[in-house]
Computed example of a mutant assay.
Amino acid sequence: MAMGVHGRRGRGGRRAPMAEINVTPLVDVMLVLLIIFMVTAPLLATGVPVDLPQSRAAPLDQQAKPTQVSLDAQGRIFIDDAPVAEAALPQRLADLAAAPAPPEGRRVYLRADRSLDYGRVMRVMGELNRAGLNHVALVSTGEDQP
């Protein structure tokens, strides 16, 4: 009589329960979820409404006084509290860029009223860029308290 190797049998001839977990379906589900999150994450980032003038950021610690370019609610342009006509802005910015800069570089703070058109602010930023003033920081106030 040939004796073969048989699985363990409990009482009554039933097989013992298998103590291993099949992880293949779990890995499949996790990979599908990962793909879904990778596809939807960039879509969620573009749909977030942003109120730029409010910020909880700490003020910058800096030794040299930066140049401030401001736009008020009527769209008038100021450089360090001095009014500048829009036609004279490129020349004033070119003169500012040509002046000797501090060792850490020339910083420009752009302050704009929140009621202004975004395109108006971008035109001023374009003039700053054309003049070679590339270290521009947008200034905001602290978060409004209710």
Rank of each mutant, 00 (worst) to 15 (best):
L110F: 13
A101V: 09
D95P: 03
V50C: 01
M3H: 13
T67R: 00
G126W: 05
P90H: 07
Q63H: 06
S70E: 07
L128K: 00
A94Q: 15
A16G: 01
G126A: 11
D80V: 08
L116D: 02
D61M: 08
A137S: 12
Q91T: 14
I77L: 02
G126I: 00
D72V: 04
E86R: 13
L33C: 15
G13V: 12
L26V: 15
V32P: 01
V29S: 10
P53G: 02
M38S: 14
R15T: 09
R8K: 12
H135M: 10
G126C: 02
L43D: 03
V50T: 15
A87M: 06
P25Q: 05
A82I: 12
D117S: 07
A2L: 10
P25W: 13
A82S: 07
S115M: 06
V50S: 02
V39Y: 05
M125T: 06
N129C: 03
Q74S: 15
V27L: 15
A98T: 07
R8T: 05
D117N: 13
L93R: 02
E86D: 10
A101M: 06
P83S: 06
D80A: 03
Q145R: 14
P17R: 13
G126E: 09
M38Q: 07
P102Y: 08
M125E: 02
V48N: 03
T141W: 04
A2Q: 09
A85I: 02
P42L: 04
D28L: 12
A94M: 07
R107D: 05
R14L: 13
R9S: 13
E143I: 09
L133G: 03
P25C: 11
I77F: 00
L138G: 08
A131T: 06
A58Q: 15
I36V: 15
Q91W: 05
G105W: 10
R56Y: 04
S140R: 12
D61V: 12
A88Y: 00
L44A: 15
L110N: 01
G142D: 08
F37W: 09
A64Y: 07
L138Q: 11
P90Q: 04
G132E: 00
R14M: 10
R11P: 13
P103Y: 10
L60S: 05
Y118Q: 10
D51N: 14
R107K: 11
D113V: 05
P53C: 02
V139R: 00
P103D: 06
G105Q: 01
A88H: 02
L96F: 15
L34N: 01
P25K: 05
A88Q: 02
I35H: 00
V69C: 03
P17V: 07
D51I: 13
E104Y: 04
S55G: 08
A94H: 08
V139F: 03
T46G: 15
Q74G: 12
G119T: 06
L128C: 00
T141E: 12
D61S: 11
M18Y: 08
L33G: 10
L116R: 01
A64K: 03
